[in-house]
Design a protein around this nucleic acid. Structure first.
Lengths: 248, 248
DNA sequence: CGGACAGTTGATCCCGTTCAAGAAACGTGG
DNA sequence: CCACGTTTCTTGAACGGGATCAACTGTCCG
């Protein structure tokens, strides 16, 4: 029982945006898996690796990342507990980016072949995983817009708004108060800025009264105003897909 | 016969990276569709639209795009004939970006419900479409790296390398000689630069002997060298997935 | 107590932007 | 086939947002 409940977050996540019947849910919970602890900074996956398993983040935070020959690093996404990390490993042969632990993490890993078999046997689950991938892509595109076309203040503000909203949606925090599990250097790598400039930008947001910081905990004083300067509209997160509500 | 051949490019595209049996191929070809011509600059899809159909680009070029409140535009991807444009419309409820014709286009549209039914009935096709989505995501992430962490020269060079390689892979041009269907302003919007700076950067690439331009036709004189300064590695395009070769 | 790392701040520099204007290319209609 | 308006390309000059370099401060932890 305790064993079969470990993959419950996968069901929760997929069911949050896709309709799943009882049989589908059971099939997911019955997937063979291993749990694993990973230390801060450790790699889950390296670019170029032959993929063998996908993983689910049970606790802690992680991120995806790519490096440029000249040494630069671009953080591509941030993952919170419950996220299906690297679902693509089930389908693509070679990893095209690095996946790394942001903090100490617990995760469950499922073999590539088991996921493929499940997708083959249960079309609704396959569809749900496809939806998850599409939402992931939507977030990547919003990040591309963020880095390509917003100024430093907008980029940082947008990242904060998104992180808060996702934490809220996962039931892990309020949208206007949370701890950001990233150093300023990591924030810089996520926004295409430098650590120094991130520091100044955060200071400016603080001084203009939009946020209050203590350590890495952020309180957003005026969420409306911050979303405004961030040009944040949550549509791209697709939080309101035809999941549980409609399935009921 | 002539009618059923119109969707052949879909089969070609999906089979290029995924194994499809004869029945799968036939099921795709038998999808109900409409063909449509679209003028330059016209919108296929607008952000916020309720999705109704996906489309396949039969001829011409298109791009996906998002706008920022302050007026900026970020081009998210460029599509060439044979690309499955907006496959996500089959699955997500609301469009999260705009899709626009770059040149006059011909396309085939397939109803959302028909694609879902096909995915449900033929798991291998569902998997193939999922793979297509994943590759799309991989390209987005590379673009994010491009815009976030490369300088102007690297960005333009990378875009040229990618476009050439994709054209070659689709059998539409050589990797070192092709016409770019984008104005300099559009190149700017794809790379997070300004049109003026794109102009100067192209001039520099030309003057340093890496490329030769005539109109919008680019000849890459030293592909090796250009890929070097672009930090281009084609792995992220996943051109060598387990497609036709392995299926045979 | 000391060593490492994250955060902070100042001074200076530079890549890419902005503004402006002229030159080419392109379609369109007479 | 040419005249003409429009869009795209091109180039110069000046500016500025963010980068870079460097030093200092806090803070966590062994």
């Amino acid at each position: 029982m305790s064993d079969t409940a470990i993959l419950a977050p996968v069901v929760r996540k997929l069911a949050s945006h896709s309709a799943l019947e009882e049989d589908d849910r059971r099939a997911i919970l019955e997937l063979p898996f291993h749990t694993q602890s990973v230390e801060r900074e450790m790699y889950f996956v390296r670019e170029g690796d032959r993929t063998e398993h996908s993983c689910l983040l049970l606790s802690g935070y992680a991120f995806r990342q790519k490096l440029v020959a000249s040494g630069g690093r671009q953080i591509l996404s941030i993952h919170i507990p419950g996220d299906l990390l690297d679902l693509q490993a089930a389908v693509l042969e070679i990893a095209d980016h690095n996946v790394q632990a942001l903090t100490r993490c617990k995760m469950a890993t499922v073999a590539r072949s088991d996921i493929r078999a499940l997708a083959h046997k249960r079309p609704a689950v396959a569809l749900a995983m496809w939806v998850d991938t599409l939402i992931d892509g939507s977030i990547s595109r919003e990040w591309l817009l963020n880095v390509g076309r917003r100024d430093a203040q907008g980029r940082i503000a947008h990242l904060l708004c998104e992180f808060g909203r996702r934490m809220e949606s996962a039931g892990l925090a309020r949208a206007d108060r949370f701890e950001v599990p990233l150093s300023q250097e990591q924030l810089a790598d996520a926004t295409g800025l430098t650590a120094v400039h991130v520091n100044r930008t955060l200071r400016n947001l603080d001084r203009s009264g939009l946020i209050v910081r203590s350590g890495r905990t952020i309180r957003i004083t005026d969420l409306e105003a911050l979303r405004d300067i961030a040009d944040f509209s949550e549509q791209y997160l697709h939080l309101d897909q035809d999941g549980d509500r409609k399935a009921a």
